[in-house]
C-alpha cells in the first residue's frame, strides 16, 4: 500500500482512491492525417517500461477526479514527486539516481530474495 499526494487536493491519500492511467507526457502527433503508420502505432501502443524512474499519469478517481503526474520508482514503488498537468517534472533520471540509488538497490535486492 502506498500513499499519494494529490497536487490539487493537497492531501496525502491511500492508493485506493487513485487509478493509474499510464505513461505521462505523451504527445499526440500534431497532424494525425500526415502521420505514418509507424508514428501512429508508436503513439497508440508503444510505452516506456523502465525498471526505475517512471513518469506516469494518475487520476484521483475517488477524490477530485483530476488528472495529475507522478514520478515513481517501478522497483521500490517510492513516489519521488507529484505535479499538476502542464507542469514539468523536477525529478529526472539523472537527479533521481543521485543519492537515492543505494536505497533503491537495497529494496531491489530484498525483492529478488522473495521466493514463490
Amino acid at each position: 500500500m502506498f500513499y499519494i499526494h494529490c497536487p490539487y487536493c493537497a492531501e496525502r491519500r491511500s492508493e485506493e482512491e487513485f487509478h493509474c492511467v499510464g505513461q505521462a507526457h505523451i504527445q499526440r502527433p500534431e497532424n494525425p492525417e500526415a502521420a505514418s503508420d509507424r508514428e501512429w502505432g508508436d503513439y497508440l501502443f508503444f510505452r516506456d517500461n523502465p525498471r526505475g524512474l517512471h513518469q506516469e499519469m494518475w487520476v484521483h478517481a475517488a477524490g477530485c477526479r483530476k488528472f495529475f503526474n507522478v514520478a515513481r520508482n517501478t522497483v521500490s514503488y517510492e513516489i519521488l514527486e507529484t505535479y499538476r498537468m502542464g507542469e514539468q517534472a523536477s525529478v529526472t533520471a539523472g537527479t533521481a539516481a543521485h543519492g537515492r540509488e543505494g536505497q533503491v538497490e537495497q529494496v531491489h535486492k530484498k525483492v529478488q530474495g522473495v521466493r514463490a
Binding site: 487509478h19 506516469e56 517501478t74 522497483v75 529494496v107 525483492v111
Partner: peptide, 10 residues
Amino acid sequence: GYNGYGQRGS
C-alpha cells in the same frame, strides 16, 4: 494497475 517490477502485489 500500475507498472512495477517489484515481485510483490498490492
